[in-house]
Design a protein around this nucleic acid. Structure first.
Lengths: 235, 235
DNA sequence: TGTACATCAGTGAACGCGCGTTCACTGATGTAC
DNA sequence: TGTACATCAGTGAACGCGCGTTCACTGATGTAC
C-alpha cells in the first residue's frame, strides 16, 4: 500500500505505473486465471505497447513473482491488522478465521495463487516462506491463547519431534497440532467454496464455515457457550 | 477400462487410439498442468500429425471434457471397489478415506482437475454431476453406518432444510453434516499435500491424515479403541 | 533564465514460437457383388 | 477368388492468432552549468 520513499518525481511515477500494471494483472487473473497472465494483454488494456512493460518488469516471471509476494504480504497484513484491532495481546482465532474468509473470497484467484494448484513450471520466491511463516506464527499465537480441550493424541508426539516449520515458537505440540488443523480445515472449506464446488448444493457455505469454526474452538468460550460439549457415543 | 462392445476391427482400433490419446493427455497434464494441454503436443508425442487427432476428438474442449468425466468415473469406481471389497453392506469410512488419499496422490493433477482451481473459461459437463452425486452418496452411506457421536448443532438444522445435494438419501441431518465435514476436511489435507504445501515443514502428511481421520471417526469403534474420547475442557 | 546534455519512458518493427483448426489430398483397409 | 467401390485414418500446407522478448529509435523530462 505504502510506497517505499520514492524521492524524485520519476521514481514516484515508476512506482505508480508498476502498481497500475499489477492492478491490471490482478484483474486479468481474476478473469482468466494465473496461467493466462499475458504481458501483451496487460499493455493493451493500459493503452501501451507490449515492450513498454519491460521498463517496469524484467519479464513475465518477475511480474508473477511480485504478485505472489504481494498476495502473501496482503494476507499477512490482514492478519496483523486483525490482531491489532482486537486490542488483546494475542490474536483471536475467531476474528482471524473471519478475516481469512473475507480475504479469500474477496479475490478467489489470489487465494489460489498462494494455496491452490501450483503454477506449472513455476515456484515461489524464497522470501515468501518468511511471510508464510509469519502467517503461521499468528495462527499459532491464536491457538496458544485457547484453553486446552483434549488429551494428547499420537500425532502430537510426532509433531513434537517435527516442529521445524514452527520456527522457534514456544507452543507445545498440542497447539502445533491445533494450528495445523485450523489451517487445513478452513482451507478445505474455503478452497471448495472458492472453486464453486458448493454452488447448487443448497446449503449456506457461511454457516458451514461457522460450524467448523465452532468445532475448532470447542472447549473454548465460544464452543462452551454454543451448546453442550460433545461426548463419546455409547459403543 | 472396458471398451463398450467395439464390434468391428475399425471400431476396436478407434477406441484404442482414443485411449492412447487420453493417456498421453494425462501424462502432459501431470507434467505441465491442465491449462497447458495441447493437441499438437500430444500428436507430436504420438508420432502423428496435429490434425490427425481430429479424427478422434472434435477439439481440445471435447478432450478435456472426456478427461474430467474419466477422472470422476475413476474416483467413483475406486469408491465402488472399496465398498465391494469390504464385504459389508455399507462402505467403511476408514477404507474410503485411505482409498481417496491413494487415488489423489497417485495423480495430483487429476485430483485438481476435479476439485482444484477451476479451469478458466471452462465448465464441467452436466453428466459429471451425476457421478459426483454417486461419490457423495457413498460417503453418506459410510457416515450413516457410523454410530452417533454428538448432539445436534445449529448447522444440522440448516442442513435439514437444504438437502437437495443429498438427493433422496434417507440420512438424517447429522449424517449429512458429517459427510460434508469428511469431504472438506480430507480435501483440505489432500489439496495442500498434493500442492506441495507441506514439503519442508517436517511432519509426515500421512500421520496428519490419520489423525484427522481418527478425529472424524471419534465415537465410532476406531476412535474409541484409539484412546479416550475427547471431553470438554474445564472452563 | 537559458542552453547543452543525459536520462529514460514508450514506440514500432521484427524474431521465432506454438497454438487450434480447416481443407483438399493420399493411401490403406474393409465391403459388396 | 477377384474386381469395383466406399470408408476412413492420416498427411501437409495453410489460416490467423497471441505469446514473450529484442532492438534501434523518438521524444519528452529532468539535470548541470
Amino acid at each position: 500500500m505504502v510506497d517505499q520513499d520514492p524521492k524524485t518525481p520519476r521514481e514516484r511515477y515508476r512506482a505508480q505505473v508498476r502498481e497500475e500494471i499489477k492492478e491490471h494483472a490482478w484483474e486479468q487473473i481474476a478473469t482468466a486465471g494465473a496461467t493466462a497472465l499475458s504481458l501483451n494483454a496487460i499493455a493493451k488494456q493500459m493503452g501501451l505497447s507490449g515492450p513498454a512493460l519491460y521498463r517496469y518488469f524484467a519479464g513475465r516471471d518477475e511480474l508473477i513473482t511480485e504478485l505472489i509476494r504481494d498476495a502473501y504480504r496482503s494476507l499477512a497484513d490482514t492478519f496483523r491488522a486483525t490482531t491489532a484491532a482486537s486490542g488483546t495481546a494475542s490474536p483471536d482465532l475467531t476474528a482471524l478465521a473471519h478475516a481469512l474468509r473475507d480475504w479469500a473470497l474477496a479475490d478467489p484467484h489470489r487465494y489460489f495463487l498462494i494455496y491452490g494448484t501450483p503454477i506449472p513450471g513455476y515456484h515461489a520466491p524464497d522470501d515468501t516462506t518468511a511471510i508464510a511463516a509469519e502467517i503461521m506464527a499468528t495462527l499459532l499465537d491464536a491457538c496458544a491463547a485457547l484453553p486446552d480441550y483434549a488429551p494428547p493424541v499420537p500425532f502430537d508426539a510426532h509433531l513434537a519431534e517435527h516442529r521445524q516449520w514452527a520456527g522457534d515458537h514456544p507452543a507445545p505440540p498440542a497447539v502445533l497440532h491445533r494450528a495445523l488443523t485450523v489451517w487445513t480445515r478452513l482451507h478445505g472449506l474455503l478452497s471448495l467454496e472458492a472453486a464453486g464446488q458448493f454452488t447448487g448444493m443448497g446449503f449456506d457455505p457461511a454457516r458451514f464455515y461457522e460450524a467448523e469454526l465452532h468445532d475448532l474452538l470447542r472447549g473454548g468460550p465460544v464452543g462452551a457457550a454454543d451448546g453442550k460439549p460433545r461426548s463419546a457415543a455409547a459403543g
